[in-house]
Design a protein around this nucleic acid. Structure first.
Length: 265
DNA sequence: AGACAGGGTGATG
DNA sequence: CATCACCCTGTC
């Protein structure tokens, strides 16, 4: 399987949705998928998956990384990022799950978001073997704000409940264009520009999405603007110019390089 | 021990 | 556009 470069551990534990949702133990990643426990495991260059369909979906097996690396290796910093994190994949998650994860992400660090998502799964997702399903919108809408707060949502309790209601009101989460989805998202409480872009990227596969968070701003500022303060718009234009439709991949590598090495500029 | 920051958003001036 | 509150956990 998987002729493309893959570092499963790096991919699943980077700050994408799977980090928040999947269970990791002794080299194996597990979750409940369509009512059953499925797993992913890397053995050398080989990927072992209990089900090819979800593995291809989650790891976006059709992506062409030799092309992607060519497109995003735009300078020394990005060349190094690509080299250091070879095999880091853009992942795909269900739209609903991605919405929940990123509504809960505001003003928090990755381990805390994970704790919160795991708590929601434990409290409101159906138990399958030793794991829990990801809660559906119908499961969350029955909760009170107090209950969500007790599941460690903090002040995002209202946002999650409000957004869940929006989703149920709409009836489904089928969108024909990224534009259409983005308009819907920005109309949900607790979802602004940054979180909407995350959802487009990780939950809709819109690879030109470019979540501009504090880390990305520092990175862009340091790497492409000589440390000078610039407006968001200017950073977005720069990203568009450098990476166009591959901005999402560039963001992933830039973010990870910056996050893990805690660069100071 | 207590201050502080953390993949932001929404409300206000 | 700048500032601030917002829950709460982990870190120093």
């Amino acid at each position: 399987m998987s002729l493309q470069p893959l570092n499963l551990h790096l991919t699943m534990l980077s700050g994408q949705a799977p980090n928040f949702i999947w269970h990791f133990e002794s080299g194996k990643f597990e979750r409940v998928w369509e009512g059953k426990v499925v797993h992913l495991k890397q053995d050398g260059a080989r990927l072992k998956a209990s089900n090819k369909k979800f593995a291809d979906f989650t790891l976006r097996s059709n992506d062409n990384y030799s092309l992607i690396y060519k497109k995003i290796s735009t300078g020394s910093f990005m060349k190094k990022a690509v080299k250091d994190y070879d095999g880091l994949r853009l992942t795909q998650s269900e739209l609903w799950e991605t919405i929940v994860c990123f509504v809960l992400s505001s003003n928090r660090s990755i381990p805390i978001i994970r704790m919160n998502v795991q708590e929601l799964m434990k409290n409101y997702g159906e138990k399958i073997d030793s794991l829990h399903e990801f809660p559906q919108a119908e499961d969350l809408v029955r909760c009170t704000e107090q209950q969500l707060r007790a599941s460690k949502c903090g002040f995002r309790d209202k946002y999650l409940l409000g957004t869940t209601k929006k989703v149920l009101e709409r009836g489904d989460l089928k969108f024909s264009t990224a534009q259409e989805l983005k308009e819907f998202l920005l109309d949900c409480p607790g979802i602004g520009e940054k979180i909407a872009e995350c959802i487009l990227l990780y939950g809709f596969g819109e690879t030109s999405a470019f979540p501009l968070d504090v880390w990305m701003q520092r990175a862009m500022q340091g790497v492409y603007f000589q440390g000078k303060k610039v407006r968001r718009e200017e950073m977005l234009e720069k990203a568009e110019e450098l990476w166009s439709d591959f901005k999402g991949f560039a963001q992933l590598y830039l973010f990870y390089e910056f996050m893990t090495k805690k660069h100071k500029w």
